[in-house]
Design a protein around this nucleic acid. Sequence first.
DNA 1: ACACGTTTTTTTGTATACAAAATAATATTC
DNA 2: GAATATTATTTTGTATACAAAAAAACGTGT
Lengths: 229, 229
Amino acid sequence: MPIPTSKPFQKQTAKDKAYQQIKEWIVNGTLMPDEKLAEVELAKSIAVSRTPIREALLRLNEEGLVVITAGKITRVAQIDADNIADLFEPMAVIEGLAANQAASKIDEAEFKKLATLEKKYRVSLNSNKLINILKADRIFHQQILAIADNAYETKFSDQLYSHIYRYELAMIKMLDADHQNFKITANHEALLKALAEQNPVKASATMTKDWLSTLQKIVSIQELTESQK
Amino acid sequence: MPIPTSKPFQKQTAKDKAYQQIKEWIVNGTLMPDEKLAEVELAKSIAVSRTPIREALLRLNEEGLVVITAGKITRVAQIDADNIADLFEPMAVIEGLAANQAASKIDEAEFKKLATLEKKYRVSLNSNKLINILKADRIFHQQILAIADNAYETKFSDQLYSHIYRYELAMIKMLDADHQNFKITANHEALLKALAEQNPVKASATMTKDWLSTLQKIVSIQELTESQK
DNA sequence: ACACGTTTTTTTGTATACAAAATAATATTC
DNA sequence: GAATATTATTTTGTATACAAAAAAACGTGT
């Protein structure tokens, strides 16, 4: 018998299906901030019963994308644009740590893969769709987290990112009409170099700076649009 | 009508009750690592139905204290003593960040409260129960997180801490017979001073060092007991 | 038209039912 | 007796039922 190549078939449960779907709807704006989330309605829409919907909502509540209060109506969490730093600052230090650890333990194969992703990222910079850039950027970061190989860090980063991505998508939608070409791009070459040199301190500092400068860019865009009112 | 002093009555749901109870059992070792968690059994034991038990288990699964796999049996997560650094390193940087932020924004009242907690901690050092020290220590740290006032950081720290505390309790149980007085104590005075000076960089560095030195102590205890076999 | 009180409808939280799959127990074969 | 096959039992995942509370709708009086 040939050894099965794929992992032991992971069943896609109704709960997971509901979770992914609702999360996507919230992140991409289909479900608007503060919108009411009735379990029966969602159940009908996703074609499962209330139970998996409920379990998905509880998880999203944990992650802060949904607000469940006592026995009251469940709502989509608001986007706290005022406190966007609350997302970026922990992100900066956690992925800074991940970069540090990755630099300490990265091997040849991992570095090659990372370099490929960096190249893809640079290619994406020529795209006129900002979303493509954001996605390529995220994949690059996720690879660093994978190399660091710390489940807590990875989960925390993913969680923060879903909020950040949601915010960025909302911002793009809002601004795209006016500013065709505002960029939230990063310079990954310095980071890649620090990892090549296996220099943890430099890798960490570069990663942290990357996130904080992105935060700065976003804040300045906020101020710009704020002043335009 | 007098203005109500207490917060709007937060209902203690069956789900919360189950969550707290099961979590406590896992952390304090009543439920052992890898032990089977049958929903009906837990339901009987806590006197609620399967639904709230299930919701509690899902949350604990999210937090890594319980392992739910596909349609298989649910078990208490193992204590990964080998990778104890996976907990302490993110903790060190996240609470380092929190200390940084707290130093930037701390006010008179907050500082007074923190100083009181530091005093209580110092008093606890005289206790011969290590658990008392750990608890006073944790309250001190939580106050810093409260001052930093970042929900993501607080939640992440709490989550990591439940694993750390679980590990420490298990260690105490194991070693208490032999070593009556091994200490995992911290020096909070330097931290308090950095906060008094409103020096973010120093506060952050002190906090990070605090966690990493605790990690070092634990690792050396591990090596000690390892060599005794 | 607006405030207030009452009734109706939703909505949640919990309990329970049921099927499919996994686990455990038992029997069977060699 | 050990390995395998078969049966019985648990256990989970999902659906549904039901009550209590919240939200919405409606009416009434002013």
